[in-house]
């Protein structure tokens, strides 16, 4: 079984784009260890050739007619954005100056 370490938690939090304090890292390490130990039992359940199910009711090829339907206007789409300019979503710097 994989050990959940503080370093792993820091790495996962950065992948998930969640800033964590050192206190949170310690707390999460303990909590996630307990949870992972418990859910790891799924390994014991499956042996041999079992197909994976990703969706409860199998469906395929869900198409619709290629016709234009009413949709949000640009102003509506931008109405809840924290910031916008010139009809676009505005975000802070993408590249670091350093």
């Amino acid at each position: 079984m994989s050990e959940v370490t503080p370093d792993l938690v820091r790495h996962l939090a950065s992948l998930a784009r969640i800033l964590v304090t050192e206190e949170e890292v310690q707390k999460l390490t303990g909590e996630l260890s307990v949870i992972v130990d418990s859910v790891a039992s799924v390994n014991k359940a499956v042996s041999g050739d079992v197909a994976a199910t990703s969706h409860p009711i199998p469906m395929s090829n869900v198409f619709r007619e290629d016709i234009v339907l009413p949709s949000l206007t640009q102003a509506e789409a931008l109405s809840a954005a924290p910031d916008s300019a010139e009809g676009r979503f505005k975000v802070p710097a993408i590249l670091d100056e350093e």
Binding site: V39, A40, V42, N43, A45, V46, V50, A51, A52, T53, S54, P56
Partner: peptide
């Protein structure tokens, strides 16, 4: 080990 096995449990 985790997500893959969990999806198999779903089949079972």
């Amino acid at each position: 080990a985790y997500y893959g096995s969990a999806q198999k449990v779903r089949t079972l």
